[in-house]
Nucleic acid binder design. Structure first.
Length: 673
RNA sequence: AGCGGGAUGGGAUAGCCAGGAGAUUCCGGCGGGCUCAUAACCCGCAGAUCGGUGGUUCAAAUCCACCUCCCGCUACCA
């Protein structure tokens, strides 16, 4: 890999994964959005020509499904979310140079253009595949409209992905035992022509691409395994009516993952078109010598390191220079769950009245980009109070206040060699950090400089020097003012709002977002007003409250899901009578291979011996099970679990499956009444 | 079970890709200092055989193999 270090002469494009227009954004999404924003701003600070573009992902079956549930048209539904995103982004200081959406004209046209290019290049072919169909509704069942079993690992899976088992992307027609996820009707397969993209032909291209790919290690390593296992061609059409229609095919639309990443290009084009005074050639980054940097969640690595580069290569566009795949966010060690409201919602955070910079700082500096990070209000508060308030905010405030009181602004002397070296070192650190896409260090650099600043001012005690040695005092404060100015520039990527405030306090014109590192050694104006505090301390009680509220909310949901409350709905006696519950004796108990908890039981229920599957492995030794008297619900409909038929249900109590038995010995087959 | 991530002083993390003096920083603890500053800031001390075992190497937290545990996504607790 031999790409030039930033800053380069060529333009760079930074993108984040497209927010999906079907729901509210939470801190998980923000991690993508903010990290990419930080990368873009940091590149600009070190003098790299870089823009940040993205857009909403409007297509795909989840939007179609959710829109239908709300009785809306998909475009109307998705557009509403898109608009909400647009309102939210500025509140987190996400500085998109352009933010479009995949359903707009630019993206639609470009997508069709790219698909045609791929066709002309012979990269697309027709193949008859079996598609799940709902025979009752006479409706095709693409992607998540169908559920069934993964052909590779046997796990239950969605139509487009084995989301529960091996994680493989599934091609239409691959899934076994398909059932409509809408009606529950068993689906049947019908043969139907679809379009396939010859991804397999790009193996060499992709391997070379991965060898040179910058960004996080997971984005380089994970796809290597997929390539080793052999690349599958990729079905790029679907039988729904929400999406970009496939050219020349009336009843097919493009798979959402085709037009989604193309939005990265389309958004760049829109940016170029939006400029009035200057020229921007979008072709330079995408087809010329520029650079593309993708910031994504680690769940969409495959799309950005296999499908997308293959598409780009097949239609003569540049491949990305870097893919930065960040980890997930957990709360109290548990994964976010939107359906269970287990998340910190972006809007809720703002409603709490916290400055966006605080969350930006926390999300980008808590762990490495690739690492999963755990969110807690306590840790959030510690970082804010310690590093932002105590170290950075305090240094700037004490310095500027001292300078203003005693000199009316910047003392009229030069910066000392020691401080100049220190500032330059910090600038070097920022350059180094962004060249490694290390957003954590990007955010820590200004705080570390402030640490030095605090040590420096403490060591020199200008408050004493004021009378003892006025020249020396002026020197020290001059140095501190310069350090503060450098911090404004260095902090701008992560803390843009704070940096702008500081910039104004120094009476600087414009914005630190227009400055480059070189300016960090240029003296600020000789006069400025008294500063105000950059950050507010978060009270301990406040943190306690927030923590308690969050814990309550998550605990509540736990209880609900555990059904801890007594079921209020009464049933009549007849309903009870309809349950055929009998004693049984376990004859055989053996583990089901490949399953974590499942045990296959043969249970004698008097008149016959039943095979029953139960999740007992973690709680019992298998050989102590045989011979046990248990209680069996015998007229439960049979089901196949993990590929094993289960005819009946062994009753057990609690989450750790304490088996029910009788107090007195009982023969198999005695009815429970 | 699959895929992914992790295991470093009490807690949280850096370093590991490009191996080299018993190891970063923050919080917490203890002791001092300062008083310009948002009870902030500065200095010092205590505290880790870098999950385990083996291997490669003159040298491993860093490379390789195996193992154990933790976590996330999802699932099979009928």
């Amino acid at each position: 890999m031999s790409a030039d270090r930033y800053p380069t002469e060529q333009p760079t494009i930074v993108t984040c994964g497209l927010p999906y227009a079907n729901g509210d954004l939470h801190i998980g999404h923000l991690r993508s959005l903010v990290s990419a924003d930080v990368v873009n701003r940091a590149l600009n600070r070190i003098g790299q020509d870089s823009i940040y573009v993205c857009g909403s992902d409007m297509h795909g079956t989840p939007v179609a499904v959710n829109a239908a549930q709300e009785g809306k048209q998909p475009d109307e539904f998705a557009l509403e979310w898109h608009e909400r995103f647009l309102e939210l982004f500025p509140q987190f200081n996400l500085s998109f140079d352009n933010y479009g959406h995949t359903h707009d004209e630019t993206n639609t046209e470009l997508t069709l253009d790219i698909v045609e290019t791929l066709e002309e290049g012979g990269h697309i072919y027709d193949r008859e595949i079996e598609v799940a169909f709902d025979p009752v509704e006479e409706q095709p069942l693409p992607d998540r409209y169908v559920e069934g079993r993964c052909p590779y690992c046997g796990e239950p899976a969605r139509g487009d992905e084995c989301d529960e088992g091996c994680g493989r992307h599934l091609e239409p027609g691959e899934i076994e035992d398909p059932v409509s996820s809408i009606t529950g009707n068993p689906a049947e397969y019908r043969t139907r022509p679809h379009k396939f993209f010859r991804v397999s032909a790009f193996e060499d291209v992709l391997e070379e691409f991965l060898d040179g790919l910058e960004g996080t290690a997971n984005a380089r390593n994970q796809p290597r395994q997929w390539i080793e296992e052999g690349l599958q061609d990729w079905c790029i059409t679907r039988d729904i009516d929400w999406g970009i229609p496939y050219p020349g095919e009336d009843d097919l639309v493009l798979y959402v993952w085709v037009d989604a990443p193309i939005e990265y290009i389309a958004s760049t084009i829109q940016y170029a078109e939006s400029l009035v005074d200057e020229d921007y050639d979008w072709r330079e980054p995408w087809r010329g010598d520029g650079h593309i940097v993708h910031v994504i969640g680690r769940d969409i690595i495959q799309h950005h390191t296999v499908f997308w580069p293959a598409m780009l290569a097949g239609s003569d566009y540049n491949l990305p220079r870097a893919v930065c795949a960040h980890g997930f966010i957990t709360i109290a060690g548990k994964g976010l769950s939107t359906s269970r409201n287990r998340a910190i919602w972006a809007q809720d955070y703002l409603d709490e009245g916290f400055a966006p910079d605080l969350l930006r700082y926390y999300l980008t500096t808590t762990g490495g980009l690739q690492q999963d990070i755990d969110f807690s209000w306590r840790k959030f508060g510690d970082r804010v109070n310690g590093e932002l308030v105590g170290t950075l905010g305090n240094f700037v405030y004490r310095s500027l206040l001292f300078a203003h009181r005693n000199y009316g602004g910047t003392p009229d002397v030069g910066v000392s060699p020691e401080v100049e070296r220190e500032i330059q070192a910090a600038c070097d650190d920022l350059r180094e950090a962004i060249n490694e896409y290390n957003v954590r260090n990007v955010g820590l650099v200004p705080v570390e400089l402030a640490r030095f600043g605090n040590e420096y001012i403490q060591r020199n005690e200008p408050w004493h020097l004021l009378e003892e040695d006025p020249d020396a005092a002026a020197q020290v404060i001059r140095d501190c003012v310069q350090l503060a100015k450098a911090m404004a520039i260095l902090a701008e990527p992560t803390l843009p709002e704070t940096a702008a405030t500081l910039w104004a306090q120094l009476a600087e014109d414009g914005s630190p977002g227009d400055a480059t590192l070189a300016e960090s050694l240029v003296a600020p104006p000789s006069t400025f007003e008294a500063p105000s505090e950059l950050f507010e301390q978060i009270e301990e009680e406040r943190l306690d409250e927030l923590s308690a509220d969050l814990a309550d909310r998550m605990d509540l949901r736990e209880e609900e899901s555990e059904e801890d409350t007594i079921e209020p709905a009464r049933i009549d006696f007849e309903t009870f009578q309809s349950l055929d519950i009998r004693t049984g004796e376990i004859l055989v108990a053996e583990a089901i291979e490949g399953a974590d908890e499942l045990v296959r039981l043969e249970v004698d229920i008097g008149s016959e011996v039943r095979q029953v599957v139960a999740g007992l492995k973690p709680y019992y030794e298998l050989d102590e099970l045989s011979g046990q008297t248990v209680v069996v619900l015998t007229n439960l409909e049979a089901a196949e679990i993990f590929g094993v038929e289960s005819d009946g249900m062994v009753l057990a109590a609690g989450t750790d499956a304490k088996l029910l038995t009788t107090v007195e010995p009982a023969d198999p087959g005695e009815r429970i009444r």
